[in-house]
């Protein structure tokens, strides 16, 4: 699998896929997409990068352990549900804020934070599984 062409292209391909996954994640509320799909795309990017350049390179590139990403995502999702408690509403009632940034109205919301959490959990867990299995190749 580790042909020169593949090894040369893989980093760019992986970077593009991660970028695309973030795009898919953020547009998910209105168009096809969302945390699950985005997370899977990003996890595939990690897997491809791992196959091409070795797991160690992937681990260096993402600095954090993938399971830490996953845990952070789960925490984020859970906390996003707590925001509504400050407004006296039940757990996980969605909250929306419309913020003007550089003259553009950007809608921020707890479901979006939640979806980012989902994304991180999927990237972390699936990526971690894929990397762990790829590592088995080398021993």
């Amino acid at each position: 699998m580790r042909t020169v062409i593949f090894r040369t292209i893989a980093p760019y391909l992986a970077a593009l896929m991660v970028l695309f996954s973030v795009f898919v994640l953020l547009r998910g509320h209105n168009e096809p997409g969302g945390g699950f799909i985005g997370g899977l795309i990003a996890a595939s990017a990690l897997a491809i990068y791992g196959i091409a350049c070795g797991v160690a390179a992937v681990r260096r590139a993402i600095t954090l352990h993938p399971m830490s990403l996953s845990a952070a995502g789960l925490l984020m999702s859970a906390l996003s549900g707590l925001v509504s408690l400050f407004t006296g509403q039940p757990f996980m009632t969605s909250q929306w804020w419309y913020v003007r940034l550089f003259g553009v109205e950007v809608p921020l919301s707890t479901p979006m934070i939640f979806d980012i959490g989902v994304y991180l959990v999927v990237v972390g867990s699936i990526g971690s599984i894929a990397l762990a299995l790829e590592e088995r190749e080398s021993d």
């Binding site: 998910g28 209105n30 096809p32 969302g34 945390g35 479901p111």
Partner: peptide, 13 residues
């Protein structure tokens, strides 16, 4: 829920 993708709105909201 301010979302047009109904599937995603069900999932996250």
């Amino acid at each position: 829920a301010h979302g047009r993708n109904i599937v995603n709105v069900i999932l996250v909201d």
